[in-house]
């Protein structure tokens, strides 16, 4: 479990992470989603003690990771940058990491096999492609068979087979009861992997909810067009739904399914010229969330107090 409380990082007068509070639960894959530069990597670096928070704190399994005596078995981490000396081989790099914690060389062989790097274990890392570098990073993260897995953009540079492999790996680790925290700037990727999403934009946590809420959330949206739109508006507002006038004849209805809107139109005798449900994809929800960090902040709070 990872718990961040009012976590803040400032570089000069630029606030990269702004009072972020969230909890990453074990037994699930938690996606950490945000555009590039939103503060994902910085947050992850603070979790593992590589960057010091300006204020606030973050605990891993209720402890400060910087004081951990079992770092590799507690937390496995892949950070965005290739973090291996270019003149080393994967074998030397992993053996060196394993040595700090007294892990056996057999475990090094296991993770090399698991990540498909056995064939290149004696090649220098400097010549590796981005995808191979990522595989080595994942091998390093898995080395201690850790309880918490933190992966920063793990599918970067991976081929489709590798992407599927990471997805299965994350799901399998979560199924074993481990805490899995994966960052990405692609909602489509998260939609297929994560159970829970934490969205960050401009350093602020903008949403923290199960992935299902990002799609349904009772937020069916429909575009309705009619000449007597005012009549329909009155009829619908009785239902306690959100209405937004787009132009003289067009209305955006948030809440009821389009079927109910149609029936209401029939009851009130309003002839509809258009009744079009908007399929909100995760991508839309994400785009909307990150379009304007400050404005959407309040909307999400409203959503939560909506009885969810």
């Amino acid at each position: 479990m990872i718990q961040a409380q009012q976590l803040t990082k400032r570089y000069g007068n630029k606030t990269v992470v702004d009072h972020a509070s969230f909890t990453v639960q074990p037994g699930a894959v938690t996606g950490f989603l945000g555009p590039n530069g939103a503060g994902k990597s910085t947050t992850m670096r603070m979790i593992v003690g590589l960057a010091a928070p300006t204020s606030g704190q973050v605990l891993v399994n209720n402890r400060d990771f910087k004081k951990s005596q079992h770092p590799l078995t507690e937390v496995g981490t892949l950070l965005e940058a290739k973090s291996v000396h270019k003149s080393l081989t994967p074998l030397a790099h992993l053996r060196s990491m394993a040595a700090t914690a007294g892990l056996p060389n057999s475990r090094v062989q296991e993770v090399l096999e698991l990540t498909g790097l056995s064939g290149v274990q004696r090649k220098k890392v400097g010549g590796f492609s981005l995808g191979m570098g990522q595989r080595l990073g994942i091998a390093s993260a898995l080395l201690g068979d850790p309880q918490v897995l933190i992966l920063d953009e793990p599918v970067n540079g991976l081929d489709p087979e590798g992407v599927a492999w990471v997805r299965n790996l994350a799901r399998a680790q979560a199924a074993e009861g481990k805490t899995v925290f994966i960052s990405s700037h692609l909602m489509s990727e998260m939609a297929q992997t994560a159970d829970h999403l934490i969205v960050i934009g401009r350093g602020r946590i903008m949403a923290d909810a199960p992935i299902s809420e990002f799609i349904d959330n009772g937020l069916a949206q429909t575009i309705v067009r009619a000449t007597d739109i005012d009549v329909l508006m009155n009829a619908l507002s009785a239902q306690g739904v959100q209405l937004r006038r787009i132009d003289a004849q067009t209305l955006e209805v948030t809440g009821p399914e389009s079927e109910i809107i149609g029936r209401r139109a029939l009851e009130t005798g309003v002839a509809l010229s258009e009744l079009r449900p908007i399929q909100r994809t995760l991508e839309d929800a994400y785009m909307e969330l990150t379009r304007d960090a400050v404005e959407y902040n309040s909307n999400i709070v409203a959503k939560h107090s909506d009885g969810k």
Binding site: N61, H70, S87, L88, H93, S96, A99, T100, L103
Partner: peptide, 28 residues
Amino acid sequence: TQIQTPRRGKVTFGGVLRSEAIRMFSLK
């Protein structure tokens, strides 16, 4: 929350020293 301390994987000074030596001698 169950806080379980892993039995394996304790970092020791000797371990870090060995780790450094492995890397140092792997470099040309």
